[in-house]
């Protein structure tokens, strides 16, 4: 009785074959998922969580991103340039990035103050999300195949102006 005390011999019954079948099946289901994610790390290195990170003071990073933004405002970022993208309350620095299609860029992303989220949303159905943490920078590599417009939104609550943190990546042909 699920709601009354029972003696061992009352509840300790051998597992039926259907029980054993399902125990085996559910372990297999978990194993299939676990194996897939492990294998994927090797199978496709270009769709992964970035692994390169380094520590950086938030105020310092904000400066780096600001001077980067001043240098490239309105212009297409040339191949081989290291891009700095800072999330601050409540904007992206720089607000807009102009990139070339088919080129792999190195993008360093971190926070200038509190915890933020990096969400890339494209008209082509792209969605890609990362945490942006104060004190710790992500180094990511991005390559867009086709021209298009992508929004960068903050998706970690960061204060009252959070919803307005919208930036853009414009990919040119």
């Amino acid at each position: 009785m699920a709601i009354f005390p029972r003696k061992l011999e009352e509840w300790y019954k051998p597992l039926a074959s259907v029980d054993k079948t399902w125990i085996a099946a559910s372990v297999v289901i978990a194993l299939v998922m676990a194996t897939t994610t492990l294998a994927w790390s090797f199978a496709d290195p270009s769709h992964q969580v970035p692994t390169e990170t380094f520590e950086v003071a938030p105020a310092e990073f904000r400066e780096m991103a600001s001077s980067f933004a001043d240098k490239y405002r309105g212009s297409t970022i040339p191949e081989g340039t290291e891009i700095y993208l800072a999330a601050v309350q409540w904007a992206w620095i720089p607000k807009e990035l102009r990139l070339k299609a088919g080129v792999t860029y190195k993008v360093v992303i971190s926070s200038g103050d509190v915890l933020h989220g990096f969400s890339l949303i494209g008209d082509d159905g792209t969605v890609y999300n990362l945490m942006v943490m104060p004190g710790m920078a992500y180094v990511m590599y991005i390559k867009f195949d086709k021209p298009g417009v992508y929004e960068i939104r903050c998706n970690e609550f960061c204060g009252l102006g959070h919803q307005g943190m919208v930036g853009r990546i414009i990919v040119e042909g």
Binding site: T37, W40, S41, H47, Q48, V49, G117, S119, V127, Y128, N129, L130, M131, N155, E156
Partner: peptide
């Protein structure tokens, strides 16, 4: 790990 990139904080 990888598909979470699509869903995190959405």
């Amino acid at each position: 790990l990888q598909p979470n990139l699509l869903f995190h904080n959405t």
